[in-house]
C-alpha cells in the first residue's frame, strides 16, 4: 500500500472515530454520565452559546460594546461546576429525571491546518419529556474543534448556535 493510500485510510478512520465520538457523547449525556462526558473534553475546552437576537436584514446597528453575552461561556472548570450542581441531588427540576434524547446529524468533518485537529459541524436536536405530558424540543447547530490526543479525540472547542430567539423551556439544565 502506498503512502497516499495510507493517508486516505487514516483519514477515513479519523472520520469514523469522530462520528463515533459525537454519538457517544450524546449517549453519555442522555444517560447523565456527565463525568464520563467531561473526560472526553480537552483541559482547555471553550464551550459557548452566544446570546443572539433576530434583526431585520437591513439593520446595521453596531455590535454591542461589551458583546452579546453568552448563555454558556464555559471553561472546563465551569462545566465541572454545572455538573457538580446537577449531581448534588438538590436540583428539583431534574427529579424525577426527565427523559432526554439527543439526535445528532448533518455531521461534516473538515481537516484544519493543524494535523491533530478537525473542524466538525453538526446539528443537535434535544427532545425532553418533562413534567407529565410536557415535551420540549431544542434545536441547535454546533461548530466544534476536536483534537486527537494519544489516539483519543477530545472536544476542544464548541460554538453552539441555539435556533430559538426565545428559549422554549423553563430551564436549560442540558448540555448541547
Amino acid at each position: 500500500m502506498g503512502i497516499q493510500e495510507n493517508h486516505e485510510l487514516q483519514h477515513l478512520l479519523d472520520l469514523r472515530a469522530l462520528e463515533d465520538a459525537l454519538y457517544r457523547e450524546a449517549r453519555l449525556l442522555d444517560e447523565e454520565r456527565f463525568t464520563d462526558w467531561l473526560d472526553q473534553t480537552a483541559e482547555d475546552i471553550i464551550y459557548r452559546m452566544a446570546l443572539t437576537s433576530r434583526r431585520f436584514r437591513k439593520d446595521r446597528a453596531p455590535p454591542l460594546v461589551l458583546g452579546s453575552g453568552y448563555i454558556f461561556n464555559d471553561t472546563r472548570d465551569r462545566l465541572a461546576l454545572r455538573i457538580k450542581r446537577l449531581q448534588s441531588g438538590y436540583v428539583w427540576a431534574e427529579d424525577p429525571p426527565n427523559f432526554v434524547r439527543r439526535v445528532v446529524s448533518n455531521v461534516e468533518i473538515v481537516p484544519t491546518s493543524v494535523a491533530a485537529e478537525m473542524q466538525v459541524y453538526s446539528v443537535i436536536s434535544i427532545h425532553r419529556s418533562r413534567i407529565d405530558s410536557q415535551a420540549r424540543s431544542l434545536i441547535a447547530g454546533r461548530e466544534d474543534c476536536w483534537r486527537k490526543v494519544e489516539h483519543r479525540w477530545l472536544l476542544a472547542r464548541r460554538e453552539i448556535r441555539l435556533d430559538h430567539s426565545t428559549v422554549p423551556d423553563t430551564n436549560l439544565n442540558v448540555f448541547f
Partner: peptide, 21 residues
C-alpha cells in the same frame, strides 16, 4: 455580564431552579 448570564441567564444556575417551580 458574564456572571449575570451564569447565574440568571437562560442557562443560569439559579434561574434554572425557579422556572420549574
Amino acid at each position: 455580564l458574564d456572571n449575570q448570564c451564569l447565574t440568571f441567564g437562560p442557562a443560569g444556575l439559579f434561574d434554572n431552579d425557579d422556572g420549574d417551580n
